[in-house]
Design a protein around this nucleic acid. Structure first.
Length: 571
RNA sequence: GUGCCCGUGGCGCAGCUGGAUAGCGCGAUAGACUCCGACUCUAUAGGUCGCAGGUUCGAAUCCUGUCGGGCAUACCA
């Protein structure tokens, strides 16, 4: 379709805002030229969508902010601006309101264009070229492979995956990455824990002490038992280190495979599974430490190598290599992020739990100390999840009595609900996940509310088609000016705002804005549906309204696709 | 102690770079299907935006202080 390319990447709201800004600037220049306004520098003004639709589609504070610079009352300035405002194309008219706001009303052409754009771009509506040319690496979850994934990983997964999706829609070249901590201290601990459980199973519970800082989880016992079933009691005779290694070699691939399977069920697929061990084996960690030493940002003390930040605000130094010669997580992480830059990414995004916030400035600083662009690393900090059932906090899994895991959660609530709920709030706010609500099949459950709107639209299209009424887009586009009721106008505005919501979610690292846009759109659709009939209306209006339905359906389907939540045609 | 995040009607939350009578959902109350899916919609009640100063034509939004909650402050990751 030739038309489609014209509307691909079209963002109606952003286009109108940019145009309005230019128009105000033109009006300003024209008014100065006509000597109606003084030739003074006016401060930056904004164009925004007013909260109240009676205040126009867009509003500008240009007259208000330049009152002082011009030495004139705001309303006087506004009058001059309105007189010179170029009302053409997307702009129907401008009014002065309140203390001196310019209220801009968009034209019927703009409204029609928004509906047409959604219908024409179809499954691509919402895509923009905002991030063109940038290669972004989004690293998220990166759970320790020493055990099952927990609730925080569940939120991080939904958040990171949707953020990656939003960035991709906004035109960024996105790579999803999982950093597997298959080396270092916690793997040693993993080996010791496995060995202790194995020996306990071979020699008896009391014969072998369990390490104080070992992993207590039942999954460790399970792996140890599997190993015993496979290899018998013979390995118990091995020297400690060898036994631990054998157990790690056995259990780690299984744990990683289990994580992949869980994530797959959660609809997450990574482009890259990066192994920490590769950094140690290739000598990258050591090279990073050497680099920091050479640049004077690392020194030796008491047998350990310490990082010293070039930034005087950071007073505390950090260990890079322990006195026992083993590098810390910090050292490996520096090497890891350096590796990402070396792979050609122009921006790095890490999704971390809020408990890591102390690490943020250090990490960025350390990259800069390596001569790398630390400011190109952005960390999205995510607050904790509180699980609630019938008003009571849930801490433990019913089945295992241990911390609730991702797979426990997915046993209890649908993936659709989990992915939607975890993206309902911005990453920085703590969320409460109500298990009862997440499975509820009514409007209290936002997932259902949005999905229902989609199913309802599909139903209308189906029903009318059954009666011989089909949406003929080419004809419908000619009738779009008939959409004049407040409900129709409001719904079109919501459709038009979708691409901006996507870019804003991407650039603000806040996928919740997609959910909010969807909930608003669903609500707008239901109001439209209550106020406006389609069946039985005159053909022109019927076609126009069907096109609007199609536009709304497109937005819901695309938004849910970004969240990887299903958009049912019937429910 | 220090650092970061948060504090908006009974509950859960929006409020994007400060803007025009502070919004939404749940819950409560009262309504709306002989009519395209009532898994919906409409109306009403409910808030001195933690508190106190300050900046501004204008502050939930910015600054300072203060109170309350969370998190962090390891040769853990």
């Amino acid at each position: 379709m030739g038309e489609q390319t014209a509307f691909l990447y079209y963002d109606p709201l952003q286009t109108a805002k940019d145009g309005a800004k230019q128009a105000v600037e033109q009006a300003l220049a024209a008014a100065v030229a006509a000597e109606e306004l003084p030739d003074a520098v006016s401060p930056a003004f904004i164009v925004e969508v007013p909260a109240d639709a009676t205040h126009g589609d867009l509003a500008s504070n240009a007259a208000l902010v330049s009152a002082k610079a011009f030495g004139m009352p705001p309303r006087k300035i506004a009058e001059a601006l309105v007189a010179h405002f170029p009302c053409a194309g997307n702009f129907a008219r401008v009014e002065i309101a309140g203390p001196g706001f310019l209220n801009i009303f968009l034209s019927e052409d703009w409204y029609a264009g928004a509906v047409q754009a959604a219908c024409e771009a179809g499954e691509h509506y919402g895509r923009t070229k905002t991030g063109e040319g940038e290669r972004v690496n989004v690293e998220f979850v990166s759970a320790n492979p020493t055990g099952p994934m927990h609730l925080g990983n569940a939120r991080g997964g939904a958040l990171g995956d949707t953020l990656a999706e939003a960035l991709s829609w906004a035109g960024y070249d996105v790579t999803r990455e999982f950093y597997t901590n298959d080396a270092g201290n916690q793997i040693n601990k993993f080996g010791k824990s496995l060995a202790a459980r194995y020996l306990q199973q071979v020699k008896g519970e009391d014969a072998v002490p369990f390490p104080e800082d070992g992993y207590q989880g039942g999954d460790i016992k399970v792996r140890a038992a599997e190993f015993r079933a496979k290899n018998g009691a013979a390995p118990a005779a091995l020297p400690g280190a060898e036994l631990e290694q054998a157990l790690v070699d056995y259990a780690l691939p299984l744990n990683i495979a289990a994580m992949k399977a869980d994530l797959e069920k959660y609809r997450i697929r990574y482009d890259v599974w990066f192994m920490e061990s590769a950094l140690h084996e290739s000598g990258a960690v050591q090279r990073a430490v050497e680099e920091l030493k050479q640049r004077g940002n690392a020194y030796e003390k008491e047998g350990a190598v310490w990082y010293k930040s070039p930034n005087p605000d950071e007073e505390k130094d950090e260990v890079l290599v322990r006195a026992n010669g083993v590098p810390t997580y910090f050292a490996a992480d520096i090497a890891y992020h350096a590796d990402k830059f070396a792979r050609g990414f122009t921006r790095l995004i890490d999704v971390w739990g809020a408990d890591h916030h102390g690490h943020v400035a250090r990490m960025k600083g350390a990259l800069s100390a390596m001569g790398l662009p630390g400011e190109k690393l952005d960390i999205v900090l995510m607050q904790f999840v509180k699980l609630v059932r019938e008003g009571e906090a849930v801490r433990m899994s019913k089945r295992t009595g241990e911390a609730v895991t991702l797979s426990d959660l997915l046993d209890e609530i649908p993936v659709d609900s989990a992915r939607f709920f975890f993206n309902m709030r911005e990453p920085g706010s703590q969320i409460e996940l109500d298990l009862g609500l997440a499975v509820a099949e009514d409007s209290a459950n936002p997932v259902y509310y949005v999905q229902y709107a989609h199913a309802r639209i599909c139903s209308i299209l189906r029903t009318l088609e059954g009666e011989g009424v089909r949406l003929e887009l080419a004809d419908a586009y000619k009738q779009l000016a008939l959409l004049q009721t407040p409900e129709e106008r409001e719904l079109i505005r919501l459709v038009a705002a979708f691409p901006t919501a996507v870019t804003s979610a991407a650039e603000g690292y806040d996928p919740a804005r997609i959910n909010q846009a969807l909930m608003a759109l669903a609500s707008g659709f239901h109001r439209f549906y209550t106020a406006c009939r389609i069946k039985g209306e005159a053909e022109g209006l019927q076609q126009a309204r069907l096109a609007l339905c199609m536009a709304a359906k497109t937005v819901i389907a695309n938004g849910l696709a970004m969240l990887k939540v299903s958009a049912p045609e019937k429910m």
